[in-house]
Amino acid sequence: MGENSWNGYEHKCLFANVGKGQFIDVARPTGSDSVKDGRGVAVADFNRDGRLDLVMNNNNETPVLYLNNLRKSGNALELKLVGTQSNHDAIGAYVRLTAGGKTMTRQVEAGSGYASQMMLPVHFGLGKAEQVDTIEIRWPSGRVQLIDGQKLAPSVKGSRQLRVKEGSDLLTQLVLETR
């Protein structure tokens, strides 16, 4: 192999989805372009502020923990699902959320990427929207559950986490705040 690396010291990429099928790599301007020998990457909201953080394991090196400090981040809603008929963590559930004129789809998963696992609650960026119109949950059991956005506590103006039990109308809400 000699002196040189196969593909050494490459800058990690963060492809920002700017809509209309366009992506722009903003890893360097946002400071997330580590040149360590990246392998697994896990996404989670480690400080419960509604902004997703990253942890990356690197080969033969220390890992990188990136705390998301974006100042003008939109609001977020994180949905933690608890299965009753379905498996307890609702792995495989499909969630559609409509807010601010967008309908977003997420699935609950346990293992993807390269040897990586991300947090279970599904995360929806709401932009400037403070209210959710509807949430549709398709549980692994086949049950389809609809949640009317009007039923969410209107006092929460920013980001929140919502805990939903399969088939139950009881919703638990947790405010996600920036410290």
């Binding site: 192999m1 000699g2 002196e3 040189n4 690396s5 196969w6 593909n7 050494g8 010291y9 490459e10 800058h11 990690k12 990429c13 963060l14 492809f15 920002a16 989805n17 700017v18 809509g19 992506f23 946002t30 997330s32 040149v35 360590k36 020998d37 990246g38 392998r39 697994g40 990457v41 996404v43 509604g50 902004r51 997703l52 990253l54 990356m56 690197n58 080969n59 033969n60 998301n68 974006l70 003008k72 981040s73 939109g74 609001n75 977020a76 807010a99 601010g100 967008k102 977003m104 390269y114 991300m118 995360h123 929806f124 960026g125 709401l126 932009g127 980001s159």
Partner: peptide, 26 residues
């Protein structure tokens, strides 16, 4: 993942294959 909470999924992609201290590739 949606890094900026704008309602659109973005992509983070890790790379590298460091087999030497040199920063030049093969």
């Amino acid at each position: 993942f949606d890094y900026d909470n704008d309602g659109r999924q973005d992509i983070y992609a890790a790379n590298g294959w460091i087999t030497s201290k040199s920063t030049q590739d093969l």
